[in-house]
Amino acid sequence: MKNLIKNFFAVEEVSAHCDGPCGVYDPADARIKAEAVLSMTKKILAMAAPDPSDAAAVVAYNNTMSRYIAIKEDQAHGTKTDILVLWTDFFKPQHLEATPDLHDKIWKATKLCSACKTTVSLESAEALMAAVEDIHNIFWAAKGRDVAYYTAS
């Protein structure tokens, strides 16, 4: 009876959306930055120190090394920010039911960002990529979508 009455009247849709960029999240942001961290780490480790008596080579070496380090630090911090934004803004309490150790995973992933930032560690950079892939899988599972993980490099 109630439905009969109700359905006689039109229903109007009202918005409980936000119209900013919120609601648009993608772990790809973190993945691209983490890839840059891994790339810079590899480049730093592959740098061969020049002959100290070759002043021009020393300057070039220091310049290139400084740039690699600056990018690595910047991108490691960016990866951390992107992961934290997913954690604070996208993930909701109900997602913890599917992934009870989400907080721990996020904490460890962001700790890896710090390790990649402050040290030159291929092991940490590769572990960060694995953590980002893990977050990718958790994120898209939470959205109920099957999105394959890939890397640009």
Partner: peptide, 15 residues
């Protein structure tokens, strides 16, 4: 509702 003192609405979005 029958008397026109109520309207039906449907929520869209998550806010």
């Amino acid at each position: 509702l029958l008397l026109g003192r109520r309207k039906r609405i449907r929520v869209t979005g998550a806010s």
